[in-house]
């Protein structure tokens, strides 16, 4: 009887150790999300930023615009949660300018103008000195180029 009890406890311990081992990463992500939200957000921003600026060569502009729009939605959602975050404000402005650049490429002038206006509003609030359309397009083209090479 004692032997059976010992074996049951040993099995429970082994099962417990295994369960804990495999649950630790999930618990760690939850911990990071609550204790270090800025660091945790970095992963999401990194992905959104990559999707917005790391564009595939020869992809049609409409497809790129879709991808950038999805990234912009994600960034704007985070920005709405933390409106004072200046990094997110810059990211929003840059991604809006990036979408405008792609819209100009695809001949969607009206949407591009609207995006440039939104971008100018964000970046002016951040103290940017030159927010002309051509300059913003140059900056986003440069950022895209940094990702491509």
């Amino acid at each position: 009887m004692r032997m059976k009890l010992l074996i049951s406890i040993c099995l429970s311990v082994v099962l417990g150790l295994t369960t804990g081992y495999f649950l630790a990463p999930i618990a760690s992500v939850a911990y990071m999300q609550s204790a270090h939200p800025d660091l945790f957000g970095a992963y999401i921003f990194f992905l959104a930023d990559n999707f917005a600026f790391c564009l595939r060569q020869n992809e049609p502009p409409t497809k790129s615009i879709e991808t950038v729009t999805k990234s912009l939605d994600d960034i704007q959602t985070w920005h709405a949660k933390d409106p004072k975050n200046r990094y997110l404000a810059q990211e929003t402005g840059l991604v809006e300018a990036q979408r405008a650049r792609l819209e100009l490429k695809g001949g969607q002038t009206a949407q591009a103008e609207q995006d440039i206006r939104d971008s100018q509003r964000e970046l002016t609030a951040l103290g940017w000195k030159d927010v002309t359309q051509n300059h913003l397009i140059k900056v986003t083209a440069q950022v895209t180029s940094e990702y491509s090479h």
């Binding site: 009890l5 049951s8 406890i9 099995l11 429970s12 311990v13 082994v14 099962l15 417990g16 150790l17 295994t18 369960t19 804990g20 081992y21 649950l23 630790a24 990463p25 618990a27 760690s28 911990y31």
Partner: peptide
């Protein structure tokens, strides 16, 4: 009851240590 307690203790200990 003993098995459940052992399981929980081991799971928490291993999870906390790994995390």
């Amino acid at each position: 009851l003993l098995c459940i307690c052992s399981f929980l203790f081991a799971a928490v200990a291993s999870g906390v240590l790994r995390a």
